[in-house]
């Protein structure tokens, strides 16, 4: 089966309820504090809610429910669930 790996996928491009996995390449773009709160490469991330003005984003990651701003989220690249399952 053929599918496109999308290097542009980030936490910010998730749909509500959709799952992704933090990519290895994201490491240097994740603020240390977020890393310490469990936002690690390989971790499963789900977009729970989006604030009314499309920002911030409410995510569930590694056991934590966190709100982060869109500009932070758009720098953290992910692999979408479908790619991982194949």
């Amino acid at each position: 089966m053929h599918f496109n790996y999308n290097p542009l996928a980030t936490i910010a491009s998730l749909q509500i309820g959709e799952l992704g996995y933090i990519a290895e390449e994201a490491l240097e773009h994740i603020p240390l504090k977020l890393l310490e709160m469990g936002c690690l490469p390989g971790a499963e991330v789900r977009l729970v809610q989006v604030a009314p003005l499309q920002d911030p984003l409410y995510i569930y990651i590694n056991g934590s429910h966190l709100a982060i701003r869109k500009d932070t989220a758009s720098k953290i690249s992910i692999l979408k669930e479908s790619f991982v399952d194949e």
Partner: peptide, 9 residues
């Protein structure tokens, strides 16, 4: 740097 992360308890 404006950095924002809030836990939703």
């Amino acid at each position: 740097k404006s950095f924002f992360v809030v836990e939703m308890p």
